[in-house]
């Protein structure tokens, strides 16, 4: 599903020097895998996840997603590929404050040019699946943290991506809410979705099938 070869991410410093956030990353993630990326702060975990999510384009090396050479794609083509293949869950949920739960779920579909009737059916199905039908007209501020992240996950998968990327998805939740989200991830993974998450928690990492350890931009374990 994912293949990274000699991937590097750096930021320029003074006098043609560079600060490396990621160095010589070589990584393969199979379809249906559930990978946890771990490491101390500043190790480059989130940067790696944003590169996988094609939010970051300033890297060097090779990145293949489902056989497509991302490194050869133009930004617009990358955006199209991202919309087709990837869903993203954020630690801070990043729900749009001015939109209701329903509209937050609807918006990724509208960006993918689904017809209105189709979108309505898909949002209704997702509300039902996540048992949040009763909350569809509420705004994010009216939901608890766990409920918000539930909506965040629902929003990430509503367009049926093959790959779900999650950046510390339970970081802002208390333990029972965190468990609920992780069990949801497991369920999605069982249904065939490839998941890559960044986490600090050993417990959350244990829900996955594989752990990759990063330190100072290098993969030190699980390559």
């Amino acid at each position: 599903m994912i293949k990274l070869k000699n991937l590097e991410r750096s930021y320029p410093l003074a006098k043609e020097k560079f600060f490396y956030v990621l160095r010589d990353i070589n990584l393969e993630v199979e379809e249906g895998d559930f990978v946890s990326i771990m490491g101390p702060s500043g190790a480059g975990k989130s940067t790696l996840l944003h590169i996988l999510g094609m939010h970051d384009h300033g890297w060097r090396g090779e990145y293949f997603l489902g056989g497509t050479a991302v490194h050869h794609l133009k930004p617009k083509e990358r955006a199209t590929l991202r919309n087709e293949q990837i869903g993203f869950v954020f630690q801070q949920y990043h729900l749009l404050d001015d939109l209701t739960v329903y509209e937050n779920l609807d918006i990724p579909l509208s960006y993918r040019h689904y017809k209105k009737s189709e979108r309505a059916a898909m949002v209704a199905d997702m509300l039902d699946r996540f048992q949040i039908v009763g909350k569809k007209d509420l705004y994010p501020s009216q939901l608890s943290g766990g409920q918000q992240q539930l909506v965040g996950v629902a929003r990430a998968i509503i367009a049926e991506p093959k790959l779900l990327l999650a950046d510390e998805p339970t970081g802002n939740l208390h333990s029972s809410q965190g468990e609920e989200i992780m069990e949801l991830f497991c369920k999605l993974n069982e249904q065939g979705m490839t998941i890559v998450q960044v986490t600090h928690s050993e417990k959350n990492a244990s829900y996955g099938k594989r752990v990759i350890q990063l330190r100072d931009g290098w993969i030190v374990k699980g390559e």
Binding site: G53, R82, N83, H94, D97, I107, Y111, R155
Partner: peptide
Amino acid sequence: ERELAIRMALGAGTWR
């Protein structure tokens, strides 16, 4: 800016 970044992360293009 964060809202716009989220929208973009959710699939919105520049034109959108």
